[in-house]
Each structure stands twice: as C-alpha cells, then as structure tokens.
C-alpha cells in the first residue's frame, strides 16, 4: 500500500499524494452503465458459443471424422484415379509382388533341357 516513506527533500510529498488521492474523479453512473452493458453483451455471446446450433450436414461431416478424414479420402480417390489411368504393361508384377522387368531371358546353357530329359 501507499508508502509512508518521507521524501529526502524538506517537504512531505506523501501529504500531496494523499491530497491527490482524495481529489480523484469518481466514476460516473453513465460509465458504470456502459461497462455493465458491455459485460452483459459479451456474456450473452459467450453463452451462445457454448451451445451452438449446428446443421445436420455439419454434424454428419463431424461424425465421419471431419477434415482429417476428408484428407485421407481425397488421397485414396486420387490414388485410385492414377492407377485407373495407368497403362497395364507399366504395372507388371508377378504373383509374389515382384516387379517383372521387360527383358529377354538369357540362355546360358542352351542345351540344359537335355539334363532334365530321361533316357
């Protein structure tokens, strides 16, 4: 609270501060009303935010997972379109998922079929 320290000077500033405090303006009723009105207005708005009314479309969208879910859906759709437009020969995998290269098989032992033949 207000200091009771005395000024190092030869007169008492604290007395002057007290005088200034006593002569301070009093808040008018008009100002108090303006402030109360603001308070009520802000309070009403905040309450409206606490209980919002949302449309069925927004509620449905939220139930599906909102924007993050939509992001995943969009990625899947784009991937599907990409695969659909690709030329079949460029997607060339065998049954085990190994990509097959487009080259001719080299025959190192041209007569190897002979080893498997009986007789």
């Amino acid at each position: 609270m207000s200091g009771s320290e005395k000024s190092s000077d030869d007169f008492d500033l604290d007395a002057l501060f007290d005088e200034a405090r006593q002569a301070s303006p009093v808040a008018s009723s008009d100002l108090m009303q303006r402030i109360s009105k603001d308070a009520a207005l802000v309070q009403t708005k905040e309450e409206a935010v606490v209980a919002p009314t949302t449309s069925w479309l927004k509620r449905g969208f939220a139930a599906l997972g909102g924007w993050p879910a939509l992001g995943g859906l969009a990625t899947a759709a784009v991937t599907g379109v990409y695969i659909g437009f690709m030329q079949p020969e460029l997607v060339n995998f065998d049954a085990n998922g190994v990509e097959l290269s487009d080259f001719d098989e080299a025959e190192f032992f041209p007569g190897d079929a002979l080893f498997f033949e009986e007789g």
Binding site: V26, A27, A39
Partner: peptide, 30 residues
C-alpha cells in the same frame, strides 16, 4: 473501475479519454 479511472485520468489528464480507456480495458477483461 473506481481505482482504474483515477489512474487513467492521471495518465491522460483528460477525463473523457480516461473513461474510454477504462471501458475498453474492462471490455477486454470480459
């Protein structure tokens, strides 16, 4: 408000301006 108004008035030395500042500060508090 009774404490805020004299402070603002002493800073600005204009009661009308001080009242505006007090109202604005309180609005931000709400």
């Amino acid at each position: 408000v009774p404490r805020l108004l004299p402070f603002c008035n002493r800073m600005l030395r204009d009661l009308a301006e001080a009242e505006d500042i007090v109202q604005e500060a309180m609005l931000r508090l709400w």
